[in-house]
Design a binder for these strands. Structure first.
Lengths: 190, 190
DNA sequence: ATTCTCATGTAACCGGTTACATGATTCT
DNA sequence: AGAATCATGTAACCGGTTACATGAGAAT
């Protein structure tokens, strides 16, 4: 049951509405925990009822009103307790890798297209993350920020996200080129 | 609903019993799809009822009897159909990264221990995967195998697993050292 | 003796995904 | 006029996890 803790960890950054939290999850938090907006609204409601987060209404004139949430002392205590308990091993779940596993026994064409598409998506994400990291570290360079900067937590997780995406990208490129070379080798010119 | 397809993809390698499949999932397939033995027995039963896999009883004298499964023509057709449909984006879900995200606001000690433990686990997995890859490629070197070898699918997915574990390991080492340096900096000698 | 490996399942529960639902404002 | 953004939820379903259950032979 880590979604609640991912929400608490994300809210340590500052106050967010459900809508803003969904945005944050999409870029920063998605590197280690993926969640849909509906889940977040539900989880925020639960956490508020349990006193882990406190919401306050913000009246807006040009936009619909919203509720901003922040972590309470009790929420921080819960997060601390949970952080000290054993973490489950992480795992990847990736449809496309299932397809690559089978790619030498089934038509490779559609899989190749999906690999190419993944490369494009990964490139876009790499760019977004690189910019986010630059913003987080401000004027400091990376080493200095990791030594002295505030909020290294989010920086470290984004760094992992960036490395993951790069690695993912490179692998997709490799897999596609390997499968393409073999396809050509098996398909004599007509 | 990719578990069934992960099972089909894994069974392309040859015939496996539920028990053997669980082993295969633990080393090779776990790189892209994690599943517990119970799930596999259940999924095999479903797939058999639908005619996607065919089981045959093997009577053993020194060991309990077992049932070996292989993919049917219909199973292969289903896998082909599915492989051509759009893949969902992959995502990581990792408790420990949630903890790192919060590590500069909560006690870092327990998180550091878990990072160290992850490094040990990752090292072990890297070794296992390196050996598995060597076994898969046989006498060929990597380039030659990727060009001419059989079953590049499983090789490619294991390669991704290996790279993932290496990257994961390196990040854990970095994160731990960064957090340790800051802990020391914040905790003046007594 | 005890632990490990081989071998196969069932049942309850819960977290996550999909689908549904609404409505105002700003931008193109 | 239509699309995108801001803003917040409910409800059904299903896949995955946890817990439960059994039993024999091989290895230490």
């Amino acid at each position: 049951m880590a979604l609640r803790h991912a929400v608490l960890a994300a809210l340590l950054d500052g106050e967010y509405s459900g809508y803003q939290l969904a945005k944050v999850f999409d870029i920063g938090v998605a590197n280690f925990w993926h969640a849909l907006p509906q889940q977040l609204y539900l989880e925020l409601a639960k956490l508020e009822k349990e006193g882990m987060v406190a919401g306050r209404q913000v009246i807006q004139e040009t936009r619909p009103n919203k509720r901003l949430f922040k972590v309470t002392a009790e929420g921080l205590a819960e997060l601390t307790r949970w952080a000290a308990s054993a973490a489950k091993p992480s795992f990847i779940r990736d449809d496309l890798m299932v397809k690559v596993q089978a790619a030498d026994r089934i038509p490779a064409g559609p899989v190749l297209e999906q690999l190419d598409e993944r490369v494009r998506v990964a490139d876009a994400k790499i760019e977004v993350l690189a910019k986010l990291l630059a913003r987080l570290r401000g004027e400091l360079d990376e080493d200095a920020f990791l030594r002295e900067g505030e909020h290294v937590g989010p920086y470290l997780t984004c760094l992992r996200g960036l490395r993951f995406e790069r690695e993912h990208r490179d692998w997709c490129v490799l897999a596609a080129s390997v499968l393409r070379a073999r396809e050509v080798a098996c398909t004599p010119a007509t």
